[in-house]
């Protein structure tokens, strides 16, 4: 519920990026992440950053909101930068901080690494910001489809993912309910030593597990009663279709990649 805490929690919308086939988004992001490591000049980094920012703007989700969502990883990005700044000892000495020398390569490498890191997180969070979890599940099922031939349980994996998604809110409610019941019996989850607090978790976890198992049992029975007998012979309501806009997205992306190879030094 706290909207700054969850990285890339889905924001409903109707932008071009929202409407892209989730497979398109996954494929592009996969290759983008891969090609980030090919960037080695300021121009190439600039190109990739431009692509990421443009994509973000196209989603019509406010940029500050997206950046705020990255809050938990900002620390890591900054940390990486400073780590490089102080550890790398190549190139010319640019300046001294107190008596500690800072090298030119340290600055450029630190910037490059943290920029890579930033782009990586930013672009992947664009996926989850504009795609419902169930769409991602469908896309994964479809992309992994070829693996069926080697008996990889693609359908089962996708079903498991979608059921987990379905039950997360239910289990969060349940956790809240049980912790209130135990707090009423004098359990203190908030104060005390670490050992005390660990012990306070037991009266919460046991009932939670018991109820999760009960739910699983009920659900399995309901699924069976509704005729579920594995992936064989099933049809699907939710279907993914490649549209013109997907082709457009691929073309644009390939252009960026070509640009990347020209801007490399």
């Amino acid at each position: 519920m706290n909207n700054t805490l969850i990285i890339g929690q889905y924001v409903p919308g109707n932008s071009l990026v929202h409407r892209l086939d989730p497979r398109t988004k996954i494929v592009i992001i996969f290759f983008f992440v891969f090609f980030i490591f090919f960037a080695n000049s300021p121009a190439s980094y600039g190109l990739l950053t431009l692509f990421a920012i443009t994509s973000a703007l196209t989603t019509k989700i406010k940029l500050p909101y997206i950046l705020k969502g990255l809050k938990p990883v900002w620390f890591l990005i900054v940390f990486t930068f400073f780590l490089h700044l102080f550890v790398t000892k190549e190139g010319e000495v640019l300046l001294h901080i107190f008596t500690y020398p800072i090298y030119s390569d340290a600055v450029s490498q630190g910037t490059a690494i943290s920029l890579r890191f930033f782009l990586l997180i930013m672009v992947t969070s664009l996926l989850t910001l504009t795609t419902t979890p169930i769409e991602i599940t469908d896309a994964i099922e479809s992309l992994l489809h070829p693996l069926k031939r080697i008996n990889f349980p693609v359908h089962e994996l996708a079903l498991m993912m979608s059921i987990s998604l379905r039950f997360i809110p239910t289990l969060i409610q349940e956790t809240e309910k049980i912790s209130k019941a135990q707090a009423s019996r004098g359990v203190d989850f908030k104060t005390g030593s670490i050992k005390d607090r660990m012990q306070a978790i037991v009266p919460l976890l046991v009932p939670l597990f018991v109820s999760a198992f009960k739910r699983a049992e009920d659900l399995a029975m309901a699924m069976e009663a509704r005729g579920y007998q594995g992936g064989e012979g099933r049809t699907k309501l939710r279907q993914l279709r490649v549209e013109k806009r997907d082709i457009l997205a691929y073309v644009l992306f390939v252009c960026v990649l070509i640009g990347l190879f020209f801007t490399r030094s």
Binding site: T132, P133, I134, S162, I163, L165, R166, T170, K214, R215, D218, L219, M221, A222, M223, A225, R226
Partner: peptide, 12 residues
Amino acid sequence: FQNPDNQFVGTT
């Protein structure tokens, strides 16, 4: 079945 939550399979 009895429990409304435990027979709802879909996400919508």
